[in-house]
Simulated assay, not measured.
Amino acid sequence: MARDSETDDGESTAAERPVHATRGLVEMLLERAAESEPSRENLVLDATPAADFETDLGVDPSTPVLSHVYFPMAGRAVSDVFGVDLGTPAGRGRARFLSHPQGPAELTRRDDLAGVVLLAVPPWEDLLAFDRRGRRLPLTVVDAEPPAESLPE
Rank of each mutant, 00 (worst) to 15 (best):
G75W: 13
G75S: 08
D80F: 09
A51F: 13
S12V: 03
A90G: 07
P146D: 00
S99L: 13
G10P: 13
S36W: 00
G93T: 01
G58W: 14
E35F: 09
R23W: 01
R133E: 15
L119A: 09
A51L: 12
D8F: 14
D126L: 11
A90S: 11
P72H: 08
R32F: 09
A2V: 02
F130K: 03
V78W: 06
M1I: 09
A74S: 14
V26A: 14
F82V: 03
E54D: 15
A2Q: 12
R3T: 14
L25Y: 02
L66K: 00
P38K: 02
V26M: 05
L119N: 03
A14D: 07
E27F: 06
W124Q: 05
E11D: 14
M28L: 13
L118H: 08
V59H: 06
V81A: 13
P152M: 10
R133P: 03
D9A: 09
S5L: 12
H100E: 10
H100M: 02
F82A: 07
P152T: 07
L119K: 03
M73V: 12
L25W: 05
H20R: 07
R3S: 15
G103F: 06
T108Q: 07
A77S: 14
A15D: 15
L119V: 10
S62W: 09
Q102V: 07
L128Y: 13
R135Q: 14
R23G: 04
V59R: 01
P122C: 11
E31P: 00
D4C: 02
A14L: 08
G134E: 12
P146Y: 01
D56K: 07
R135H: 14
D131T: 04
P122D: 06
A2S: 12
S67F: 00
D56S: 14
E125K: 10
P38N: 08
D111G: 09
D80R: 10
D9Q: 09
H68P: 02
M73D: 14
R94W: 10
L113K: 13
E125L: 11
D46P: 14
L118R: 04
A50R: 00
L107W: 13
S62G: 13
E41S: 12
R96C: 11
V19N: 00
A105E: 15
G87T: 05
P104M: 04
E153I: 06
D131G: 12
L139H: 02
D131A: 10
L25E: 02
P104G: 07
R92W: 09
L30Q: 01
S62V: 10
P123E: 07
S39E: 15
G115I: 05
T13F: 03
D131F: 05
D52I: 01
P101H: 04
E153S: 08
R136P: 12
E41T: 03
D46K: 02
D85A: 08
Q102G: 11
A120C: 09
R136Y: 06
N42T: 11
E145A: 02
D126G: 01
V116Y: 04
A21V: 05
P101G: 03
D8V: 11
V69Y: 03
R132L: 05
V59M: 06
D8S: 11
P146M: 06
L98N: 00
L66E: 00
E6C: 12
L98R: 10
R94N: 12
W124E: 04
D80K: 09
R23M: 08
F53I: 01
R32S: 13
